[in-house]
Amino acid sequence: MDNERERQLVVALVVVGVVLSFAYSLLIAGQILLWLSVVWTISLFYLLWRFVRAHERIADALENGE
């Protein structure tokens, strides 16, 4: 259950980041391409986080002999 809660927190933070970056790009900067670059960066970090978590689970399973 703890992993599920952690995942929900990360997804919520990503959604908040995307919404804030979209609002900034439209209201302050006035450029939609700026928003796409920010979303691309956030998405890249999210996928990197998932990659690291998957490797941690694999390592834990190998250490525990599962």
Rank of each mutant, 00 (worst) to 15 (best):
R7G: 03
L44P: 01
R53L: 11
E6Q: 13
Q8V: 03
I32T: 09
I42W: 02
L34C: 08
V19H: 05
L20P: 01
N3H: 04
W49F: 15
E6C: 05
N3K: 12
S25M: 03
L44Y: 15
D2S: 14
G65E: 09
E4T: 06
S21Q: 03
W49V: 07
E4M: 12
H55P: 02
E56G: 12
A29G: 04
L20E: 10
H55S: 03
N64S: 13
E63R: 00
W49P: 01
G65R: 01
V19K: 02
V10Q: 11
Q8D: 12
V14S: 03
L9T: 11
L36N: 06
V16E: 03
A12L: 05
R7Y: 03
I32A: 13
L20R: 07
L9I: 13
L47W: 04
G65S: 04
A59G: 11
L44M: 08
V39S: 03
G30I: 01
A29F: 01
L44S: 12
A61E: 11
L13A: 09
A54F: 12
S21F: 01
V10L: 14
S25N: 03
L26V: 11
E4W: 00
I28R: 09
L62N: 14
A61N: 10
F45N: 13
R7M: 14
S43W: 06
N3L: 14
A59R: 14
V15D: 05
A23F: 08
S37G: 07
V39D: 00
E4N: 06
E56N: 10
V38H: 10
L34W: 01
V18A: 01
N64V: 07
N3I: 15
D60P: 02
L34S: 02
A59P: 10
D2N: 10
R5F: 00
T41I: 06
R53G: 00
E66Q: 10
S25G: 08
M1K: 08
S21W: 01
V15F: 09
R5G: 02
L47S: 04
N64T: 13
I28M: 08
L47G: 05
V11F: 02
E66V: 09
S43H: 07
Q8I: 10
A29W: 00
S43M: 14
L9M: 08
V16P: 02
V52S: 06
D60K: 14
S43C: 11
L20K: 10
S43R: 05
V19N: 05
L26K: 07
D60A: 13
I28D: 09
L47V: 04
F45D: 10
T41M: 12
I42H: 03
H55V: 12
